[in-house]
Design a binder for these strands. Structure first.
Lengths: 204, 204, 204, 204
DNA sequence: CATGAATGAGTCTTCATTCAT
DNA sequence: TATGAATGAAGACTCATTCAT
């Protein structure tokens, strides 16, 4: 049903996959284009048929992967009806994606925060779109009277993401994973949910 | 009583201050040693009388600044008796430090997450020490029955820090600061506190 | 009677014409084979079906164009009987060719003087043939007692050509052409003619 | 009396001298910066302490050498009183400079005609200054009634220079120098002088 | 201690050329 | 023949580090 990837698409993908691996291992600045080429099984020059330059590899990587992540998240969240469960689901999916694609996660972690000119613009756009998934849940919760009005959705969506990101980072770094990722996801989302809900609701 | 800084100490400091400025502006890998030297008003070679190499500048920067940050935080927190207020204070101090020393904060943000070999070891040690300030508050809270036992202090201290760090990052990036840092600090800490406290306590 | 150009001849020509345009614009070393291909409307690889390599394009260009130029010059000169008028005609034709085919002229100007190994040999042969048109006129003039015997035909043919070439170059570069090319041609040839004729002749 | 060159001046000169040698041998585009460095006895990187980039070496070379050539020519010409002898002297000096500094001459020959953006501007300025030496002699000759008014000084100065340049080029290329440079100089200048002088003067 | 000129290893990038289709 | 994707050698340039002064 799905078309077979053409040779060209294939090579594009292969280079990007190689880049993810290499960037994750060495960081962007310590990665050599030639290493990516080798990892991808192409000649150095071939890279430049698919990407403008080294920077462009990183940018493309974000463009394409962030889009996938956002779409995937929206789909997973969509399955839930309950707003609070949506938040919990968000936490679970985000943490799991780290487990399933740790190389990509490692890159995002660092490069998202790099202040390099070129990143700032594009990445932020996509990142903001991602965060909007959370903030719109919160806003809806506020409309429905479930979540306190004093909560600033923008701030809290940032905080929620930051908390999850850091917990995931810790999990990846920890040699022995004492606490499971899903337990952590539940813990964090419970705290945020409980912290945000209307006190009145809870009395009943 | 405190000795006046010798010329040497002075130059060491000047280089470090210059490095903070330069690293914050360009990121570590796009910063040139010669630019740090110029900013510090010393010759390129002089840098190497005080630091082993470029990496060492960054490491020293962490060593010295993290220590200050930790000591400062401990002192500020110490003024508070109430455990929950301690947490709030933690948030306030962390966010304020971003405002007061944005260059240093910008560096920490990124470099803390760089996977460079040399960082991992040292930085993590200091960072863990910093996080322990939070986790020990939580542990004490649990001992006193204020905070739920199900909460894993290690995980939550990470999450708390991650949330604050991200909110601070957002604040720095936002052109017009709609929400004040202290409001954000309160918002985040309230959520975490409310989210962690024993339900029983709240009924009364 | 003349055969229509086959597809092959056509493509060969198109590539050469494209090369003239591209070399003239960028100079040989700053021209890319791919740009010539594009200009010619063929694939990069096609170039190599007609030419051994990039150098060979330039060489072929000289071979073919120089031959045309020489034949054309001989024909034009042949119309004149008077030796001195032949010289004047040479000047006119040479300068006009610059006007009519400035791209080719621009290439000749520079590449004729490039010391690249491969050029030296072939180009010089053709170039010498071209100069012989002038030197044989001079020799004949000397035989007939019109031109001074002290004049070295080889040297003067060079000088004559060099003078014309530089004047043409100036004309091309000048934004507003104050002096017409034909006036210049006359001026230069007059000087050379007057400068070379036997003084005795002029007394009568 | 003359100050000893400082180390820095020395290295600057050495690189330029090396560049003249290397450019003359291979042409600009076939010359490697590393070859210049080696020839100059410095490290590759050192080149970039004295010149912005490879282009800048060529530009500097023109700037400095053209200036010397112009000054030298003016001085030599200045020794002569007679206008026509000045022209002859110009020819002699120009041709001799080719003999004395053939490498530099070879570079000028080609690069002066290269259309590279950067050259056009600067070089032309200096080159025009050089040609003005000739054209002002001609103008003065016209004022004094020695040289025909119909002669366009700008055009003829170009032609004169072009003639000399080509003769010199021929001389350098010729394996056995049948005709001496000074003879050629005299021949060319005689032709131009005779070709430009007022006919009336010659009758007496 | 301080300097800053010099070093040269290291890398991105280009582009002529090839070759499977 | 024609294509154009792929190759990989080559070279300009940078910059951390050294060391003679």
């Amino acid at each position: 049903m799905t078309e077979l990837p053409t040779k060209t698409e294939d090579k594009h993908k292969r280079i990007l996959q190689a880049a993810i691996k290499v960037f994750a291992k060495n960081g962007f600045y310590n990665s050599k284009v030639s290493e990516i080429a080798q990892e991808a099984g192409v000649a150095d020059g071939t890279i430049y048929l698919y990407f403008k330059n080294k920077d462009d590899i990183l940018i493309s990587l974000f463009e394409e992967e962030m889009e996938k992540i956002i779409q995937n998240m929206k789909q997973e969240i969509g399955k839930e009806e309950d707003l609070l469960k949506k938040l919990k689901m968000f936490a679970v999916v985000q943490l799991n994606s780290k487990k399933e694609n740790p190389d990509l996660a490692a890159i995002m972690e660092v490069e998202l925060r790099q202040s390099s000119k070129f990143m700032k613009e594009y990445v932020n756009m996509k990142f903001i779109e991602y965060l909007k998934i959370v903030s719109s849940i919160i806003k809806e919760g506020q409309k429905k009277g479930i979540i306190k009005k004093e909560v600033d959705p923008t701030i809290v969506s940032r905080a929620f993401w930051g908390a999850l990101d850091e917990v995931a980072r810790f999990w990846v770094l920890s040699p022995r994973k004492k606490v499971s990722l899903s337990t952590s996801a539940e813990l964090i989302s419970d705290i945020f949910i409980k912290g945000m809900v209307e006190a009145v609701n809870r009395k009943s």
